[in-house]
Design a protein around this nucleic acid. Structure first.
Lengths: 192, 192, 192, 192
DNA sequence: GATGAATGAGCATTCATTCAT
DNA sequence: CATGAATGAATGCTCATTCAT
């Protein structure tokens, strides 16, 4: 029993597809309604303008990321386990919603300076969970005295690198690589 | 003796300023010639179109990055020294040319899938230098058996994180933070 | 026992209100059904299109004017009395239906040249009554040899002036002013 | 040596023609540029939008009216002479610029209540000259004790009537009619 | 070299109208 | 009777680009 998709859903899907494929600016309303197979009026029934379609798409993304972090990264996990879970979650959600993640980034670039900074706040809560874990791990002596933000930066940076590499060079990250990355964060690269 | 700037220079400067401030798409030729205080015809004397102005701006950036890497990161340096130099160079060039760095990224998003991938190649040589160094360091036993690409990713990721944080939250990276980051990459976060 | 207004009445009222407030062209069907609190289909049940709603509103106005002229301006009245009654009736009906009167005018402007001229005929009968009275008054020697049309023009002109002044400057006409106007039409402004 | 009309002049002429012929709302930018034989960009080079074209057309009208009143109606004229001159000027300027006069009126109807009232001020100065003359004529005993505004209203009213009649019924006013109208204003219609 | 008037393809958005429920 | 989702033709406006001076 496949429920017939609503016009709004079709438009959301078409927007995601096209913004990703052609970029936000280069995507026209005509492109969208052609792909969604609906009239132009229908688009404006559900979205007040092109920007608001993007906004709705973005919200889906941020919400998903938030949920997954809460589901996968539990503060009672061990250090290695937690780092792996964090990295995994970031990577899988971004990968799964790869388009949205990248569209988000692009959108920020389109905004003016002021607005760009403001928009950063949406993702911050997801980062805080990781920082809090590390801070606590330092207190309990599991992690040595380092700046927690530094660690957060490293995890995010690694995630970002893998995603870009996957996207640009078509070379996806392997579980082995993830494991190795966590290993490096934990024990460093220097031969003891 | 202040040399009077040529019209072309004025246009390049105006383009950099405006692409950064308003984004490439939202910047009009009129915006540019108003800021550069020249006629519309003059713009088209020096640049065949808006894209080619951006391209010229980009080339300046890539060239600078390349030169700086060659100048600062010498393969005879020690591991810690080399990692620090790499990170430093990435950060300082991006920071110095922050606008261009970010405009570059945006531009890629504007391109279609195909073109986006192609454009990645321009930065690659700069990354290869770092990878080659690590590969060699593994051979000489200074670095333990890890995937060199993993290390490259970590360095780039860290650089990226600091730049975004600086840009978005206005919190610049300190020398201490750089040192700590290298320290983590070398020895990890885990309490031995 | 307040009769619940029918949907059609609600739409007519909303149309009058909005055409006057925003102008015919700027009023949308959505505006109307929102104010009338009914569905879009309901509008089209009672009116075949936006124009026909205006037409129906107009008819109410012309009918009212006609009735009032017949009621108030009797051909057996004396000259002064008749002129006063005519002026009064024009002013009160237009004032009472001020919105419709003004909407009428606007609508004519919207029509093309051809249609505009045709629409004039609707009001003509009301003017004719006055002209006939004057013509007759000349015959009976009450009025001196003047062009009756000239007199009609003067009465209409005065009415028009007061209405516009009231509408634009918020300065309504007083009974004294009406009396004075009739006095001038009867005896002129020159000091005898 | 016929000077070639500038594009802007062509657009102004086309606008006047079309606003009059089809009404402001029904006239499209495409209509205008087709008639003016220029590109759409050219329209927007000279006028920021459709409204501003109308505004410019209006200004020409008000300016002309002002100039003509000053030229033709001198406060040293006798009463009959002045009234005739006033009426003549109103009628000839409106007739000459008939389209603009009527477009002005229409425009006001398009505006919302607030704006409509404000726009009235533009014509007022032209009316004041007449009022001042009458006020003075009462002081000098040439005109009997009447409300000057009443007289102004009558003159404007008569002018309005003749214009509408000309426009709607294609029956233009004759010099004889003008003379008669002034005669009525001076001496009234009643048989003494 | 330098200029800016002229251009028109392209786009977002509006809104009267239809029709299935 | 009543509704409102769906429609798409129509329109105002933008802006990169050309070219005559």
């Amino acid at each position: 029993m496949t429920k017939k998709k609503s016009k709004k859903e079709l438009i959301l899907e078409a927007g995601l597809e096209l913004f990703f494929e052609k970029g936000f600016e280069k995507t026209t309303i005509d492109d969208i309604i052609n792909l969604a197979e609906c009239g132009k009026g229908t688009f404006y029934r559900y979205f007040s303008n092109k920007d608001s379609l993007l906004e709705e798409l973005e919200n889906v993304f941020v919400t998903t990321l938030s949920k997954e972090i809460q589901k996968n990264c539990c503060s009672t996990m061990g250090l290695k386990e937690y780092l792996t879970a964090s990295l995994n979650t970031f990577l899988s959600v971004f990968k799964q919603h790869q388009r949205l993640g990248l569209i988000r980034f692009e959108r920020e670039q389109r905004l003016n300076l002021e607005a760009r900074r403001a928009s950063f706040d949406k993702v911050l809560p997801n980062i805080h969970a990781l920082r809090d874990y590390i801070t606590n791990a330092i207190k309990t002596g599991v992690v040595r005295q380092v700046d927690p933000e530094n660690v957060v930066g490293m995890v995010l940076g690694v995630a970002h690198f893998y995603l870009v590499r996957d996207f640009k060079l078509g070379k996806p990250f392997s579980p082995k690589e993830l494991e190795d990355s966590v290993d490096i964060i934990l024990y460093g690269v220097a031969k003891s």
